[in-house]
């Protein structure tokens, strides 16, 4: 039985002083415990959608809203100040814009104090999150004086520590090197597996996102172009390319093989699946030649 926790109905948003709609007639349902990937070119409305789920839009921005955004069955605008944020946590794309405190430790603790947690609870979660995201050596440093990658880890940890049921991550690895990026996705995989959080990730790094995502969403020019299960979503390569989304090399490679008649229409999403497919194709060819 599906358990829809986020429901977006005919939702449009236009920022004040903008002639275009940032989001146009979005209809979307997200089930509890799912890992959702949102992709799309710059300016397609991804961040606007993320902010709409946390009521930062329309709360903090002037503009025109149409339609409704429900989280746990309640319209986001109906939540009292600070109430929705107990359930929905957003990691901003620019981590520095998320910082509110003078040290990394204060930064991590701030959200937990807002939730009214007791000191033992804060201590326990702090130890968990610093260990998970490897922040121990940075605890007494000012968050705005550490490296870009460290800032993103702090921003992520600060939201993780609040343990929201829904986590929205807006390009959480844009400043990270490949190893740190992998580490962040490992953390997300762990959360998905152990905590069963609903995780919504806006990300350009598809190699890391695809293996985790249950469903994918494509936004372009404020419109929801495509929404499907990850495997099905990436069978639409021509559409993705048309919308300036470049799938991982392995997918494009198999798409070309498919076009040339060497592969079947089910494109492999991961390196392991691609390897198996390729071995299968080679074996078929060898067997074909031998016969």
């Amino acid at each position: 039985m599906s358990n829809v926790i986020i429901q977006i109905k005919n939702y449009s948003w236009q920022y004040m002083n903008s002639s275009d709609l940032a989001l146009r007639n979005i209809n979307l349902e997200i089930e509890e415990g799912k890992f959702i990937g949102i992709i799309g070119p710059n300016g397609s409305g991804k961040t606007t959608l993320a902010y709409s789920l946390d009521a930062l839009i329309p709360g903090q921005y002037n503009g025109i809203k149409q339609g409704e955004v429900f989280v746990y069955g309640k319209e986001v605008e109906k939540y009292a100040k600070g109430e929705l944020q107990k359930s929905v946590g957003v990691v901003f794309s620019d981590p520095e814009s998320q910082f509110t405190a003078m040290t990394v430790e204060d930064e991590l603790v701030f959200g937990m104090e807002n939730l009214g947690l007791s000191i033992p609870e804060i201590k326990e979660r702090l130890e968990w999150v610093t260990d998970l995201v490897d922040l121990e050596p940075l605890m007494l440093k000012p968050p705005y004086e550490i490296s870009g990658g460290q800032k993103q880890r702090v921003a992520l940890a600060a939201v993780l520590a609040m343990m929201p049921k829904v986590m929205v991550l807006d390009e959480p690895t844009s400043m990270l090197d490949p190893i740190s990026r992998k580490r962040v996705f490992e953390v997300l995989a762990q959360l998905k597996k152990e905590k069963r959080n609903t995780i919504i990730v806006i990300e350009h790094s598809l190699e890391n996102l695809i293996p985790l995502a249950d469903r994918m969403i494509l936004l372009s020019n404020g419109e929801l172009i495509l929404e499907d299960e990850t495997q099905q979503f990436f069978q639409n390569i021509p559409l993705l390319l048309e919308k300036s989304v470049y799938p991982p090399g392995v997918l494009l490679f198999f798409y070309r093989l498919f076009e040339a008649g060497y592969a079947n229409s089910v494109l492999p999403l991961t390196l392991e699946a691609a390897e198996n497919n390729l071995i299968k194709i080679i074996n078929e060819k060898i067997n074909g030649v031998n016969r």
């Binding site: 814009s97 509110t100 804060i122």
Partner: peptide, 22 residues
């Protein structure tokens, strides 16, 4: 935005939460 996203409020029920000064 950062304050709102982290559940801080100057008014309303969230502002009355007893804060533990960790």
């Amino acid at each position: 935005n950062a304050l709102v996203a982290r559940g801080y409020a100057f008014t309303g029920p969230a502002s009355k939460v007893k804060r533990a000064d960790y």
